[in-house]
Design a protein around this nucleic acid. Sequence first.
DNA 1: ACCTGAACACCGTTCAAGT
DNA 2: ACCTGAACACCGTTCAAGT
Lengths: 233, 233
Amino acid sequence: MSQSPWQPISPAKPARPSREPLTRDRIVDAAMGLLVDQGYEAVSMRKVAQALGTGPASLYAHVANKQELDHLLVDRAAQEMRFPEPDPARWQEQLKEAMREMLRVLRAYPGVARAAIGQVPLGERAMLTTEQLLAILKAGNVPDQAAAWAVDLIPLYVTATAFEESVQRAAEWTEADIKTFVADLRTYFESLDSSRFPLTVALAPALTAGGSGDERFEFGIQIITAGLASLAP
Amino acid sequence: MSQSPWQPISPAKPARPSREPLTRDRIVDAAMGLLVDQGYEAVSMRKVAQALGTGPASLYAHVANKQELDHLLVDRAAQEMRFPEPDPARWQEQLKEAMREMLRVLRAYPGVARAAIGQVPLGERAMLTTEQLLAILKAGNVPDQAAAWAVDLIPLYVTATAFEESVQRAAEWTEADIKTFVADLRTYFESLDSSRFPLTVALAPALTAGGSGDERFEFGIQIITAGLASLAP
DNA sequence: ACCTGAACACCGTTCAAGT
DNA sequence: ACCTGAACACCGTTCAAGT
């Protein structure tokens, strides 16, 4: 080492703001960091800029606007999804595995679902997930038009599910809070006027079952898979 | 007329703010008015207050917060939904009719879907729609647990669909803008590297078909109905 | 009890000015 | 070309003070 280790040649810097130039990637990194440990609400242009030691205006040289940043977050998450190799003999189970994988990643980044909802996924990585879903559907002989609409329906369902969960998470509910809420809800349903709400009263236990969300989700992907299978020759 | 027509007995008022007392209903009326002619983004506590000739703080005596106002808007819309009388012989078609009716109303109040997404519908009118959906499913002999989860899945799908549409509407796209966008999208899909995106390229026409949304929605409700039917004995 | 003005702690985005 | 400070036009919510 010919160079002094305790003092670089370039002039001293204000310690904090590492003077690496701003890039799209650094902005997305910072935004993802905020999202993971403070939730989607914390992902504002101002807070992202602050995390990078600069002002909000600086971001606009690299990102068109907040919406584009949202798109980039979704694409970053899509990157982590891993789908099975299409196998015609197992396509229905594989479709379910793919949907579970999508939900797994959306749960790992709570808040990404909020950025993704109602968004046409045109990022490169998001489009690769579409391609892979199409491959599984084609392996199952689902007709082209049905497959095309299915790759719209599937992310819509999975994202909406993750979004619902993230709303609860944002309220910082613990497992116990949810349990209490579900129990209260059941009592409330049972207490309704049974001449006006006969089925809500009678089905109160079923309506409040599957609180964790996993069973509900399994039901949903079962419905979608069975519905698609009914269209395959 | 014993009273001077040009000067009421009570002291002159600034013409605009009719001094009817604030009520929940008046607040929801004003919010709904804003939502209908300026979109969901215009529904802020401040703008609603302004429309009522008062300040934002005044609303908090009648409405807990913005979230509760959102719930009230959803319930107001739910009130307009009309469902068919359950008929065991026609339950599948009736279920589709019910979903079309839900979408019809959500489209009539563009923006309500944004307030409804990820929200457990606990308003009285919203719960009546749940009750009526349950009735149709029970007419079809769908098992209790499946029916219970279905009344979660169905509004989730319909609301997510309406939400997607409302995002486009909020961007103030005309019919022609959408046509152009879809055409560009198709060209884009076709131009992709077909070794990485073989199916996206091959299915480009199918992926961009059904731009109006009606065909896509019919596909979705067909999938859901068929999936549920597969669970009925 | 209901209403209000003013304040607090935030947003996204733009723009002229700097380097 | 990239970055910045300051400003613009907004948010939801709270609170002490009024009637």
